[in-house]
Design a protein around this nucleic acid. Structure first.
Lengths: 214, 214
DNA sequence: GCAAAAGTGTTGAGCTTACACCCATGA
DNA sequence: TCATGGGTGTAAGCTCAACACTTTTGC
């Protein structure tokens, strides 16, 4: 379950997108589904998640965290399947390079049709988690490149939380987080006063030990 | 992974306790471990968790939630094991009735020795989650019976969070939560002014849909 | 009456929110 | 010079922590 930011077709502002793969066999042949695959005996859970990501979409995550283990009896009509789902964030540069083909395509997170299995429910849950983590933890930076302006961070929050935020208060709030480092660089080329660039100095997201937030 | 409140041997105040089972075979034969067991083809994950609870300790949980899926390669020295761990809260009446035997025993959560497998780490993580959920959500009531005084709620919080809380402010905070209902009954038999009894009107904890808190 | 817990009131500190305002740049 | 987003200041309002105070019981 991968999230990335891409510019909206209409407004051009950053929006949440999700890569899906097309089912090429039954059940749910032809429908879109989350990328995934089996766990081998010699890899850990996050390793397996990364590998499946890489194999199906070619993406390398900048953040990876376990979402939930789904084990309902009737998730698949043919057999009992337990899925330990991970969710990942990838940076825009990665997302732009991603393989897109007949059977791998990006969709806007808020405009998905009916997916295979219980994948709509899984995505809803992941979206809920993403919003929660964003509201508390410092996770949004994994959706951005190394350098960013405070307005870009705000756009990420606005895209994910789907509401406008006060620029003045938001910048104070962000500048107060210790992992945010001011640089001496400015983003040139805009139409107006060039904004200062910042960087995130927190480490990439590992797993069950990033207990900064529920 | 079960939590319950029992009176401390020394102070008599409520404390967090955990039932553990003794390993009767290798690996880690003789060491204490979390109760658990295999998942059958015909039961959901929470059903399997409840069943294992029932079979090993005789307890029925008043709250049950998925904790995490642990899948490290070397969790067990003999074979690869993936454990989807649930955590549960049981009410004091249940906990008092629980089977205790040579191979099933209750331990204080803050005084555990070395356990089998990675179970110490799992318990640490569960404790962290419990504290987090307590601080935000309304979960503490699943550790209490149907009727309780506000002072009892405070004792639960003090036991789990391991710090004293202002009685005056705490009661206001609790009374402000909508799921708390005032009754017309009072707890008699104390040494001082009889406190009013309250009850919790929230439903028992289901799973991935109680999204009130991260 | 006295001790102690139950329960209420009040105040000040700190944080959030809303919004007025200045600054720097491209056109 | 003007429009626009970048960036700063500030006052109102809210929440929370501390603590003084009143109430009601057992002894």
């Amino acid at each position: 379950m991968i999230f990335a930011l891409r510019p909206s077709e209409c407004s051009g502002r950053p929006t949440l997108w999700i890569p899906l793969v097309r089912r090429i066999r039954e059940p749910f042949k032809g429908l879109w589904a989350l990328p995934g695959g089996p766990l081998t005996h010699s890899e850990s859970l996050p390793d397996a998640a990364s590998r499946n990501l890489q194999e199906t979409t070619g993406l390398a995550p900048s953040y990876l965290e376990q979402l939930y283990a789904f084990g309902g009896l009737h998730r698949s009509p043919t057999q009992r399947v337990v899925s330990i789902v991970y969710w990942a964030l990838v940076q825009p540069t990665e997302a732009a390079l991603a393989d897109e083909s007949e059977n791998v395509k990006w969709f806007r997170a808020d405009r998905l049709g009916e997916l295979a299995f219980d994948h709509n429910a899984i995505i809803d849950y992941a979206l809920w988690r993403l919003r929660n983590k964003m509201a508390y933890g410092s996770i949004a930076y994994h959706l951005l490149g190394e350098y960013f302006t405070l307005a870009q961070v705000r756009e990420v929050y606005e895209a994910v939380l789907d509401r406008e935020l006060d620029p003045a208060n938001f910048r104070r709030q962000v500048k107060a987080t210790p992992e945010i480092e001011e640089t001496d660089q400015y983003l040139q080329g805009g139409k107006h006063r060039p904004p200062r660039l910042y960087r995130f100095t927190g480490r990439p997201g590992l797993d069950p030990d990033n207990r900064s937030t529920p």
